[in-house]
Design a binder for these strands. Sequence first.
DNA 1: GTCATCATGTAAGCCGTTACATGATTGC
DNA 2: GCAATCATGTAACGGCTTACATGATGAC
Lengths: 203, 203
Amino acid sequence: MLELAILGLLMDRDHHGYEVRAHLRDRLGLGANISFGSIYPALARLEREGLVEVAVTSATKVSTLSTGSLSGERASLRSLRVTPGLNRKSRKVYQITPRGREEFAHLLADPATLNDGKNFSMRMALAKYLAPNARVGLLEQRRSSLCARLGEARQYASNDELDTYARSVMEHAVQGVELDIAWIDTLLATERSNQINLAPEAN
Amino acid sequence: MLELAILGLLMDRDHHGYEVRAHLRDRLGLGANISFGSIYPALARLEREGLVEVAVTSATKVSTLSTGSLSGERASLRSLRVTPGLNRKSRKVYQITPRGREEFAHLLADPATLNDGKNFSMRMALAKYLAPNARVGLLEQRRSSLCARLGEARQYASNDELDTYARSVMEHAVQGVELDIAWIDTLLATERSNQINLAPEAN
DNA sequence: GTCATCATGTAAGCCGTTACATGATTGC
DNA sequence: GCAATCATGTAACGGCTTACATGATGAC
């Protein structure tokens, strides 16, 4: 899962490890910070598998050209969150390889093991890389598993042996699932209206 | 966390391991089934620590009395979910010890490491064992951490580099946190109205 | 020159899972 | 008797965390 998320970030542009953490948090659904103790080994694995590689950054190139085009260096740093010129040399900037792009596409579309909410949120945050029909498939699968979950949750909530607090917890769980389903439904509606716009009547 | 949940179940009545799993799912907030590979070792640990012990069940007692009071045996089995007389002998029924009750009270009230939603839900499902002020404290602590989380989530959702899908994920996360806060607020309101009822004006 | 922050990495441990192995009880 | 379920356990592994160790860079 971490690997998929990292590949997803690298689809957009190159990142170094320290930066990956912040983006996993605020661009993909992952709530809290993933620790570096997970991120660096994951990057090392991905590199060993040939899915990512250490990029020769334009910043590095420029610095070897001594006082060469300063505007070029600025441009390469503009996309980084940190202030220009900060810690350039000690960074290892990773870029995704063609094989990495293939593997990413495969992993993202793979319907296996996408059970929990965290995993789904992360996939959805990367959904722009999915074909429209794969996106609808992902949403429908999620919807059906949420509906099953809703049935269970309602059953648990209706257990009359529960005290006030336990019942409230169960009822809140039901509400949470209902909110999730409503969200999925708005996303599905958007997908379908887009499909209609792209493929108007064929008669 | 598992230990706390199991102790919480045993506060109510004795359970055997196989049965614990279903109750963790449908009486406490734990969504999916916890595997037996976690439950049995946890019970063994609790027994080693003297917090639970294997109960001499009334069913066992009665069966040694050969054809003794059948109504007594029925009564002891009535509380079990399974049909009467099923697999009685191969069960190991656990009961909580006095030290286990102490430890449970201590763990449940302990404000340390109650960060995530799962943990909080489980504690809340056991809140009937908390003193009213401890309950309010737990709720307020949860509320404040959710408010912090809400601020972060809103910030992430307002990042204008996000595409449609990623933004939708972030906005849905905000809605989820808002729902959680609303829930906490209803619980807090209930707690306060109860306190007023129990301690009306002191003049 | 020193401190905060940025940056990378390793090792140990936690807490859960899956897979495996075994056996009792009961319905048919 | 045989299959389904109930019931208990162990072993290996997974994925993440915390704690630790190290060093570069830039602000002051």
